[in-house]
Structure formats: C-alpha cells, structure tokens
C-alpha cells in the first residue's frame, strides 16, 4: 500500500527524455521545451546540442534534474569548465571579476564560431532575453547569484553582420550587380 506522502505527491511535469531550454531573464528564469517550434532553431540552426547539461530545478516543491541548455542573455553556458577549452561556462562566469566582460567575450566567441546562421536568427536569439517564454522556474545552480548584466544587443548584432560580410563578400557579386545596372 502506498503511503499518504506518495499518493499526495504531484506528478512531475518534467520528463527525462526531453531537452529543455532555461532562459535567464532577470529577475526571473524561465523554462521551456528546447525542441518545440519556437525554440527548435537553437538546436537545428545553432547546433546548441553541445551545451546540453544537467541542471537542478524545483518542480512541484521537489528538486529534480533536467537536461537543458542554459541561455544566459542568449549565451549558452555549460555548468563546469572543460580543461583546455574556452567554452563559456557558469563556473568561470561566477568567478569572473567582471561578469559583463565575461558575457561579452562569450558572445563574441559564440558569434565567431557560428557559421551559416542568418542575422535574423541571431536577432531571434538575442531577443529571447526580452520575451517571457515558458514557465518561471527556480534553478538551484543560479540561486543567490548576482549575475545581472546589461548587454548591448545591437552592438553584438552589428559584430555578427560584419563577420558574416567579411566571410561572404565576393567581387563577382559586385561585378554581376554592375552588369545588371547596364
């Protein structure tokens, strides 16, 4: 026979076989399903699979672990530093002497490493910090941390546009354009 505790326990909302998206959107944090229509571009277009990590969240007053991508103002962070790599991570962010500069460096790193992503999708990624998608959640690893920064998104978008132009600029596009004008 089940004990009263077990009978009263609510069914967990989060599933082991799903990948979630945790958006750090101060003062709240929101969780959503990563491969739903709205967020799927992050997995297919950006290849954020490598940022999937295990995070501890509070679900119906119980702690539970979920596999999720944590987006810190659009910057995916893994939980711990991987030695020998520069992959942005929460451990380094927490220990950084300037969280804003760590975030900016991380975003530039991300934007330099992305290829074939159209600028409107980058805008969509950066806009995720303004939108409230999914449900508010508590993430244990982010509790009592002062991680609020005020990033300049248009600066980042400008940088991405420049990098894309630098990598795709082609004399023949100008030549063909010239011919069309005749």
């Amino acid at each position: 026979m089940f004990s009263r505790d077990i009978l009263n326990r609510k069914k967990p909302v989060f599933k082991d076989n799903k990948i979630y998206l945790i958006c750090y959107n101060p003062p709240s944090i929101y969780i959503d399903i990563a491969d739903n229509l709205l967020n799927k571009f992050l997995l297919t277009g950006f290849g954020f699979y490598r940022f999937i990590d295990e995070w501890t969240i509070e679900d119906n007053d119980q702690e539970c672990k979920v596999r999720a991508i944590l987006l810190y103002y659009g910057l995916p962070l893994i939980k711990h530093k991987i030695p020998g790599t520069k992959i942005p991570n929460l451990e380094d962010l927490k220990n950084s002497s300037n969280k804003y500069i760590y975030y900016i460096a991380g975003m530039y790193w991300l934007l330099m490493n992305l290829s074939n992503v159209k600028p409107p999708k980058i805008k969509k990624l950066l806009n995720l910090t303004k939108k409230v998608n999914g449900q508010p959640i508590k993430v244990k690893e982010l509790e009592s941390q002062n991680l609020i920064v005020y990033p300049n998104m248009s600066d980042l978008l400008d940088f991405y546009n420049l990098i894309q132009r630098a990598r795709t600029i082609n004399i023949w596009d100008y030549y063909n354009w010239f011919i069309k004008q005749l």
Binding site: K81, D92, N95, S96, S97, N98, I101, Y102
Partner: peptide, 15 residues
C-alpha cells in the same frame, strides 16, 4: 585593470 581572473582574460584573448 578590472579583469583579474584568468578565465575572462583567456576568453577575451581568444576572441
């Protein structure tokens, strides 16, 4: 002089 930790410095340098 604000940056005192190695991780932020290294990430910035790489970028």
């Amino acid at each position: 002089k604000e940056i005192k930790d190695e991780a932020t410095k290294e990430l910035l340098e790489e970028v």
